[in-house]
């Protein structure tokens, strides 16, 4: 069975060493997913796999037979951006733009996790539903490094979308 990326099917690679990240970037013509460290230390490669966000650099393409992947290109396009993508532009939630697809994939999944009631390290009482405080957003987004230092703007962009959705 193939792997499904942004609703299109692709055959898995013959070489088992191909990471899911390299597969997405080099084998499917979808370079929007970025490689910043290749070791799960920066989050630039974040994609949404079967509904949850992961680091695509730390897994093998061959392990994802019949899996469903959403990359930044599947979240929205320049012509039809998602609400988060628009908010990132409005709040200048990036500078060089290299971590940005990972930030947006991560934030997209993160809002769903909060809606599900998943706790985080910033949750005061993990027995209860987490709030949507800035501290919660920051902790949950900490797996996405931004060396340009756009963090406060990213939080502002996410907050705008989260507040509009509530």
């Amino acid at each position: 069975m193939p792997i499904v990326i942004n609703s299109l099917e692709y055959q898995l690679p013959a070489d088992p060493r191909v990471s899911l990240l390299d597969f997405i970037r080099d084998h499917t013509g979808l370079p929007g997913t970025k490689k910043g460290c290749d070791h799960g230390q920066c989050g630039a490669c974040t994609v949404i796999l079967d509904g949850v966000r992961i680091n695509s650099c730390l897994t093998l393409a061959v392990m994802h037979d019949n899996c469903d992947v959403i990359t930044i290109e599947g979240i929205g396009s320049a012509e039809q951006p998602s609400a988060l993508q628009q908010a990132f532009v409005k709040h200048d939630g990036f500078q060089c733009g290299y971590c940005t697809p990972g930030q947006i994939c991560s934030a997209t999944a993160m809002l769903a996790e909060i809606a599900e009631g998943w706790p985080s390290d910033a949750t005061q009482d993990i027995g209860t539903r987490p709030s949507l405080s800035d501290e919660e957003i920051r902790e949950r987004m900490s797996g996405n490094l931004c060396r340009c230092g756009a963090y406060p703007n990213i939080v502002a962009a996410i907050r705008e979308v989260a507040d509009a959705g509530q």
Partner: peptide
């Protein structure tokens, strides 16, 4: 806004 912003947020820069 940055003119290249939509390219960056959509992974097409």
């Amino acid at each position: 806004d940055r003119p290249e912003g939509l390219l960056k947020v959509s992974g097409t820069a």
